[in-house]
Design a binder for these strands. Sequence first.
DNA 1: TAGATTGTTAATCGATTAACAATC
DNA 2: TAGATTGTTAATCGATTAACAATC
Lengths: 224, 224
Amino acid sequence: MKKNCMRAIPYPVIQRLPVYHRELTELASRGVERINSAKLAAKIGITASQLRQDLNLFGSFGQQGYGYNVPLLLVEIGKILGLDRTFEMVLVGVGNLGMALTRHPHFRKRGFTIEALFDVDAELFRTDVGGLPVRPLAELAGYCQVHQPDIGIITTPEEVAQPVADILVKGGVSGIWSFSSTRLCVPENVVVENINLIDSLMSLGFRLRQAQGADELQTGQSKR
Amino acid sequence: MKKNCMRAIPYPVIQRLPVYHRELTELASRGVERINSAKLAAKIGITASQLRQDLNLFGSFGQQGYGYNVPLLLVEIGKILGLDRTFEMVLVGVGNLGMALTRHPHFRKRGFTIEALFDVDAELFRTDVGGLPVRPLAELAGYCQVHQPDIGIITTPEEVAQPVADILVKGGVSGIWSFSSTRLCVPENVVVENINLIDSLMSLGFRLRQAQGADELQTGQSKR
DNA sequence: TAGATTGTTAATCGATTAACAATC
DNA sequence: TAGATTGTTAATCGATTAACAATC
């Protein structure tokens, strides 16, 4: 019983979908057949209301008085997430992080495969990362024309993130997974997902201080 | 003119603070002396209202009719983010990602320094990553007692993320920067910042499909 | 002073939570 | 059938945006 015309899904919901998928995978692997929203939500750390609200954006997968069938719900969420297809990716910037991502085995398992690597450093052209040759950046545009990758991964230095994004966009990728701090300018039909390590660390630093500040207040050692 | 007692800062605000800091750093480096909320907000891609609202959670840093003094605001936000201090970190799990993070030069620049590396793989004990020796995991607890690191970085396989977190918590870290998918159970005084690469990629995949679905609708090629 | 722009209050919007009728 | 639990509507909460008086 699919929902109508798929209105835009709120970003917070999108972020929870992989979490649901992982939890259900775990349950299914343990042979659990059936679960209700209260228990599943508790495992994830959200309310049952929110879980049901989220699922019902996509359809009605449960049954009153019974709950949800684990394997069935797992399949449905997999479909929603597009795990029934594969995404071809190219990676630009074969530094430490780029290499680590290339060698990361988990992406392929979920249907995200890195098909080609690009860099400007001629030293790297001889090397081989995770079984893939490193190609000159100059070949990126041509490669995209021929192979039509879905996603471009940007792990370059800041200064070239935007120009690389431009090449990828011209090359026709539909999505960019960027690890740079630069807010990329791309046409609105291109989706950008950003992972910003420094920002994440700075947020952590802030919250750390805040927590410690709170501790101090509790122990009566406020700074003011 | 500092704000009173620092109520809990909403997480969305915390996430924007590093963005403000970066943009101001850029402006300052170009020698810009003064900026108003409208222009700064436009650069970042938010509303002027939001920017002013955010800043005023921490104090009044601007001046009516003038705007904000760039170097001054930069310093203030640096203080808010705790960039006037350093955070000592230990990293557990010296795989591809762990090594990449260790060699990443930007963290140190912002006051986040990785002081020690731990792993279970005896092969690694001989190697040296970014000038640091890799120590046996068994030494982690002892190391924490002696050196009192602020933050523990977890880049281990999923299965050991929680046990490692437990050791770190016992060792007295105030924050954990985790790259695992496991939702870590820690006492509430310990702050966890999670970066989940697979989830991020799956979100991107979903949005990609959604965007492509929308395109199809536009061109009249809906699937139903 | 007049113009610009903040700090801050009020209005809107969206997401989360609560409640409950529908129904398996 | 009676009990359980969903799907869904209504209420609440929080964050964003708009508006404007204060003021440099």
